[in-house]
Design a protein around this nucleic acid. Structure first.
Lengths: 202, 202
DNA sequence: GTCTATAGCCAGATAGAC
DNA sequence: GTCTATCTGGCTATAGAC
């Protein structure tokens, strides 16, 4: 009978850990703070997860396995290039507005630990051959201007992911508050795909 | 006679601190590691900078005052919009290739400490009115498609800054090594401005 | 499973000799 | 100014009662 929502304590620890680790990063996070947020005792963290490192890894894996499949859609989905761009932009921004710390957390920890990054990807290696072929076909058929598949992939990622990672910088330079920022992000659900399609269509 | 390159120790500390703080961030950086990198004793760090916090602030201010004026070029330079985009892309990428940790460091620390971010910008508030007017004129004169100035600014920033911040993610997804990555970045000095101009020109 | 108490370690900071 | 030695506090982790 352990198939239900089961362990309330364990899952509330994981949720609290997600919040703290994602906002502060591994090094700055404090076990005490996670315990407080979960509303339980600090030693419970060790009881369920043994060490800070293991708790962190649980949080990171959960975050990465949420984000990676979404990015994979760009290179592996079966629809047309323009549909792909429109769908990804719409879905991704909608999702990240609800989890604003996620991309920055992943990027930060990958930057901090590059070998870890390599190991992660070597397990389940993405393959952009399909995407590259799609681009080449569309170029040949006169649907889009000549463009390198890698560069287009980077551009799609950049336009969608950066605003959330660089939010404080953007808010500072544009001198806007959280509310205005969120409004801009909602507009981007269509602005970004329009921008990309305009850049490449003939 | 203290106007020369002066204090060798103080400047070698600052240089070492830049390297460590920018790669590891405030929380994960160790004073001992900075001392080792500078080739001096740990207590010298305190002699010159009093505390880790103050040393960090010296590093951060130096980094921010290097990056901010470059971004300001987008909204304050006097040239035409297309020249602005071409120049910024060329200059910024050339610069960051030589200082790859800089943008991630700044973004990371601003994310960790949002009040700090607000204070920084309130001192010398950027103003995008000039840039907004330029966009509106170009739209009216039929040079570019209608676009919101804030969104265009975000897009320029995203396409130029993101690849360096998200480098490990990109290397992982494209399955490329550092050499190939660098090659892509060099290509972006013209790829990115082409992309942006194609997206907005009529 | 959950708590209190505490061990053990590590890093920032200081004292003081030279 | 630069070093060695040491203090101090804070944080991870564990022992052990309940």
């Amino acid at each position: 009978m352990e198939i239900t929502e089961s362990n309330t304590t364990e899952s509330s620890i994981l949720n609290a850990a997600k919040g703290i680790f994602q906002r502060k990063g591994m090094a700055a996070a404090r076990m005490q703070e996670i315990a407080d947020e979960a509303g339980i005792n600090k030693s419970m963290l060790h009881y369920y997860y043994r060490s800070k490192q293991l708790l962190f890894e649980a949080v990171f894996k959960s975050a990465f396995s949420t984000l990676a499949p979404q990015l994979n859609e760009i290179i592996n989905a079966d629809n047309s290039l323009f549909d792909k761009i429109i769908n990804f932009t719409q879905n991704y921004i909608t999702f990240i507005v609800k989890h604003p710390y996620l991309p920055n957390f992943i990027i930060q920890e990958l930057n901090r630990n590059p070998e870890f990054a390599r190991k992660l990807f070597s397990e389940k290696m993405p393959n952009i051959d399909k995407f590259r072929k799609q681009i080449e076909n569309d170029v040949t058929n006169g649907l889009i201007k000549p463009i390198n598949a890698e560069q287009l992939f980077i551009n799609i990622l950049a336009l969608n992911v950066f605003p959330f990672v660089g939010a404080p910088l953007i808010k500072g330079f544009l001198n806007i508050d959280d509310k205005d920022f969120l409004k801009l992000m909602h507009e981007r659900k269509i602005e970004v795909s329009d921008f990309i399609i305009n850049a490449i269509k003939i």
